[in-house]
Simulated assay, not measured.
Amino acid sequence: MALPLHVSDGLGGPAGLLAAFYTAFGVGAVLGSVLARYVGRLPLWPVTTGIVIAFGAFLLPVGLGAPTWAAMAGFAVAGLLWPPYASLSTALFQRSAPRELLPQALAASSAVRVLSVPLGTALGGPLVTALGAQGALAASAVSITVLGLAAAACTARTVRRPKA
């Protein structure tokens, strides 16, 4: 919701510029899909939380008003990170949930993912109204990064804690 407004109002760009942003994300996502099979060989928790942190960080140039080429490059790298995250988070559920609870855990995860799109859209309008398109993009990028850092900290505490 914020990106089209940022491109048209903030950058004064034509529809083709918005299409270029989406194309950059899409090209990154295609490459990320190819690379996802190799990422699965790495430790799941650190890589998954690292992806969330990096995703937010690479969206930040868009929200900070970086030059268009830098914002678009960040958007492309964010696209690259998207497919591995989806497969790694599913793998984490499969490896972490007890076998008898796995169907419920995956169903709950799917429900959250399905509800996040309309909820994000509902919250996005007031956020863009309050902060402007660029401010909403910056707030989103910072929020994603902070959540990733919090998840990494929680994961590190859990891994270091000795089992009784």
Rank of each mutant, 00 (worst) to 15 (best):
V7T: 11
H6P: 04
L35C: 12
F21Y: 15
H6Q: 14
H6E: 15
L60V: 04
A36F: 05
F25W: 13
T48L: 15
A20Q: 06
G12Y: 11
L11V: 03
V30Y: 13
G10W: 02
I51D: 08
P43W: 07
A66N: 04
L5E: 12
T68F: 02
P14N: 11
V62N: 03
V39F: 10
V27H: 02
T49H: 07
W69I: 14
L42D: 03
F21H: 03
P43E: 10
G50W: 12
Y22Q: 13
V7M: 13
L44D: 14
G50T: 09
A36G: 12
A15W: 08
P14Y: 01
G32M: 07
T49D: 07
A20R: 01
G26I: 03
T48P: 06
A57M: 14
L60P: 01
A24C: 05
W69K: 05
A66I: 00
V27R: 01
L31C: 13
A15E: 15
L42K: 05
L17H: 12
V52A: 13
V47F: 05
G56K: 02
G28S: 11
L60C: 05
G32W: 00
W69P: 08
A20M: 06
A36Q: 15
V39I: 14
F58C: 13
T48M: 15
L35Q: 06
G56W: 00
P14L: 02
G65K: 04
V30S: 03
L35S: 11
V30R: 06
A24F: 04
A15Q: 14
S33V: 00
V30K: 05
L35P: 02
V34P: 02
P43D: 14
D9C: 03
L17Q: 13
T68K: 00
A57P: 07
I51S: 07
G12W: 07
A20Y: 01
H6V: 05
G50D: 11
L11F: 05
G12N: 08
I51N: 02
A57Q: 09
P61E: 02
